[in-house]
Simulated scan of single mutants.
Amino acid sequence: MTRLPLSRRRFMATSAGAALIAGASGLASPLRAAEPIKTAGIYTVPVEQQWVSRIHKAALTAQERGDVEYVYSENVSNTDYARVMREYAEQGYKLIIGEVFAVEQEAREVAADYPDIAFLMGSSFKQDEALANFAVFDNYIQDASYLSGIIAGAMTKSANIGMVGGFPIPEVNRLMHAFMAGAREMNPEIKFQVSFIGSWFDPPKAKETAFAMIEGGADMLYAERFGVSDAAKEKGVLAIGNVIDTQADYPETVVASAIWHFEPTLDAAIAAVNAGTFTAADYGVYSFMKEGGSSLAPLGTFEGKVPEAAMALVAEREAAIKAGTFSVEINDEEPKSS
């Protein structure tokens, strides 16, 4: 178990936080926090992994503000997940965050035993109103993925894009479909090679899968997993990043990235806990671009190298997404090669 040093400061509610909880109803005083909220993160992978790193970053930011006292456990196996949840609950943590995609039932059973603790968990399922202290979230960054797809569609010369994912769960599927839709905006004839490696963190396997796609004609890769951009760099093809910005690490390889910002999600939960209104809810909405939960990373070294027509379309669509006049389709079905 890895833990960070704790710091204590008085919580200062912001107008943004107040707006997030305005009109909310839910649990009463047991979930109200008078001091920085004792918060624990439980992760099945290293905190360096893309998805978890964004949760970890947001929690560290909240700790620096004095909103929470944050500790975490990483590399927790699925068989140990419920046990670790109970340990933190017994230690008096009031907000527990993590990802329960593989342990949904066990996690909800633990939450039911600790009704005075707020659980905010990444999940492929929705909230259960009967379990008032268990809220769910997911990274609905399809808006940014769609925009990155437009860029990919404009940059591929072979009209063949390789896509390497972890598991075909809704959270991954919707991002891939959005990316594919964006690419087809530039070239409806683009072909996609789609493969899942059956792991959230296996860079060597992701890299080998990407090599096979390059051999199959792909000159652009969608790097949903670590290892894919390494393959692209070695073979001299391009890549599109996901969740985090790796352009600085691959300046000649990663053209663009769809970024997830977990801060709006966590800030909403913090505000609700402090107000005593935390309840079963779907926090996925806070990942939408119009909520500040996702963005297209700066192009860095590729600034000025993407065709003007593509960048014009990106600007047009981004403005429309933020204005609420354009919606990117959310398709959670498993994507297939075409």
Rank of each mutant, 00 (worst) to 15 (best):
R317I: 15
T301P: 08
T301D: 13
L238K: 15
E252S: 15
S287G: 12
A309S: 15
F196D: 00
G304F: 11
S195Q: 15
K207D: 00
G241P: 05
A320L: 14
P298Y: 02
A231E: 01
T265L: 10
S229K: 13
F302S: 11
T279Y: 11
G276H: 08
S257R: 06
V255F: 07
V314G: 04
G236L: 09
A232W: 03
S287L: 06
A280N: 03
V254H: 06
D245W: 00
S199F: 01
T253G: 07
E224L: 12
F196G: 07
A248W: 00
N242W: 06
T253F: 05
P204M: 10
G236F: 10
I259M: 08
I240C: 07
P204F: 09
F226E: 12
A297K: 08
N274Q: 14
G216M: 02
D282I: 06
P203C: 09
T265I: 13
G304C: 12
W200L: 03
W200I: 03
S199T: 08
I270M: 07
A268G: 03
A312M: 04
Y286E: 10
P307R: 11
S229C: 08
P264M: 04
V255T: 12
A218S: 15
N242S: 13
P307M: 09
S294P: 01
G217P: 08
E215P: 05
A319Y: 07
T246P: 06
F226A: 14
A239P: 10
L299A: 04
A206D: 02
D219C: 04
G227M: 04
V228N: 05
A297Q: 02
F226Y: 07
V254T: 13
R317C: 05
A272I: 00
S257C: 04
Y250E: 03
I270E: 06
S295R: 04
G217D: 09
Q247P: 00
P298I: 07
A239Y: 07
D202I: 04
S199R: 12
A268L: 01
T253L: 04
D202L: 05
A269V: 00
I214W: 05
F278Y: 15
P203M: 05
E303Q: 15
F226I: 14
E234Q: 15
S257V: 02
V237G: 03
P203V: 06
A218L: 02
F201K: 01
L296R: 03
A223R: 05
I240S: 14
T301N: 15
I240H: 05
S199G: 06
A218V: 04
Y222D: 00
P203I: 08
H261S: 12
G241V: 06
Y250R: 12
P298E: 06
F226T: 13
F302D: 09
G241T: 08
E263R: 08
P298T: 06
M213A: 08
I197F: 01
A210M: 03
K233Q: 15
S257D: 02
A320D: 11
G236S: 11
D202H: 09
A280G: 02
S229E: 14
A280M: 00
V306I: 15
V243C: 09
D245M: 05
I214E: 04
T277E: 07
D245F: 02
I197P: 05
E263S: 13
W260Y: 13
Q247G: 14
A218D: 08
D230K: 10
M213D: 07
K233H: 11
